[in-house]
Amino acid sequence: MGDVLLEVKNLKKYFKTPRGMLHAVDDVSFTLERGKTLGIVGESGCGKSTTGRTILRLEEPTSGEVFFEGRDITKISKHEMRDLRKEMQLIFQDPFSSLDPRMTVSQAIEEPIKLAGLIKDKNERFRRVLHLMDTVGLAQRLVNTYPHELDGGRRQRIGIARALAMNPKFIVCDEPVSALDVSIQAQILNLMKEIQKEYGLTYIFITHDLSVVNHFSDDIAVMYLGRLIEKAPAERLFEKPMHPYTQALLSAIPVPRIHNRGERILIKGEITSPINPKPVCRFANRCEYCTEVCTSQEPQLIEVEPQHFVACHKVNAEMGQGQ
């Protein structure tokens, strides 16, 4: 194992609702090495965004531990957390609502530097702003422009510049390109890869777009109803998905080519409610391989092959026979 930057252990985040406890994130554990990218994929309501926000303590976890450079950040005070924010940043999904409409481009990028008190001298600080704008590909003439005058791609560049402003080590990217057009999306993805190399960043990349996550991540974690159900290196997951849900998810991607298109696995039904889930496999009611054990016991995440983790009774049973 390499140099572990982030370790998440049994992370849980429940929300109280009038109908009961909503298990947004339920017992999620993983480790992430420095300089790598972990992609978290899943459909709406699977808890992927909440996972990202809870790791950054923008939501207080219900239970569990998050070790950042060996330090459990769920135990430190709010004050210490504020200092730590320099190192852990977030890039938002919606570049239209995540920027204050009353701040110009340069003000928005300057704000984090100012708040952290990193650079006291005004001109010095402004040079840093210009440097950041240059890094993310924003022309200097935009310094006095307001976000509503810019298109989604440029706004997302502002968001990235803000995240970079304090030289973070780790960035959670919450669907950073899903609000953007295809041609702009590719620009932003390339930019994020470049700065990752340049600054040695570690990413958690949250998305519902499987082709993007495949392109962007080293490891991919698949979530379903608050549970992490499969995690593997990207090529491994795409080559040999094991969980029936992952298999269906991968086959559902509309592939932009007209020859040798794969066979599609259609899963029936829709996602069930994450409120007070029973301790059984949460995918059981939609799964074509569902057996009795699936509706009576909750499957645990098990390393079935090196680096390949799956939470599925069927996979476990098959692996058990093989050995």
């Binding site: 295809v182 041609s183 590719a186 620009q187 499987l210 392109h215 795409f238 592939v255 932009p256």
Partner: peptide, 20 residues
């Protein structure tokens, strides 16, 4: 060229330059 190739994750994205 802006779309990631699902079969070749190492392939580079070649976006269109500029904006709409």
């Amino acid at each position: 060229n802006s779309l990631p190739d699902i079969d070749n994750r190492k392939s580079e994205l070649k976006p269109i330059k500029g904006q709409m």
